[in-house]
Amino acid sequence: MLDIAPLKFPESEVLQSLSRMSIAGIAAFKGRRAALEAALGLTLPHTPRRVAHGTTNYLWNGHDAWLAMSETPALLENLTTVAAKFAAITDQSDGFVAFRVSGFHRRAILKKLVPIDLHQDVFAPDAVALTLAGQLPVKLWMQDDGSFALAGLRSFSRALHHALEEAAREFVHPGHD
């Protein structure tokens, strides 16, 4: 087996890496959305929202497309088995790296980078946004605990982390870790 040296990023009380997850892209073939949903046993979001099903989160990822995220390593295999007839299933577990922005100032941090309205009355708890953080395309959503999660391309993970760290700098107090 090959060793994995996981990507490591400095963390603070407001910025952490999200633990490694299985991620799979799902893109429905024409006219097969209903069959896909039946095979998965759930209704997929048709607007930018996320839906939880067991331990898997399904994030809207564009027209008739979703990203499934789960702690289960067998996610890709399971999805392929039940859904490959109805949708293109692609492994994306290594394509993205995600970060969590938390704490009282999380919106103040993100407004420096994210050009959409994150006000609590506007960005719903189950909302998903495909947008920018600074110059980087990201997928943005709120976790169940109210913190924000951002997933960016793996090759940009250091750049994304740097941008978030700089934005969070004024809210991080030295001495905390």
């Binding site: 892209g25 893109a27 429905a28 073939f29 024409k30 497309a65 949708a87 293109a88 692609t90 492994d91 994306q92 577990s93 290594d94 394509g95 993205f96 391309l153 793996r154 090759s155």
Partner: peptide
């Protein structure tokens, strides 16, 4: 056309 495509540039080394 019934086709789906997605970038996997980052997924694969």
């Amino acid at each position: 056309l019934d086709v789906c495509f997605v970038s996997v540039t980052d997924q694969w080394a």
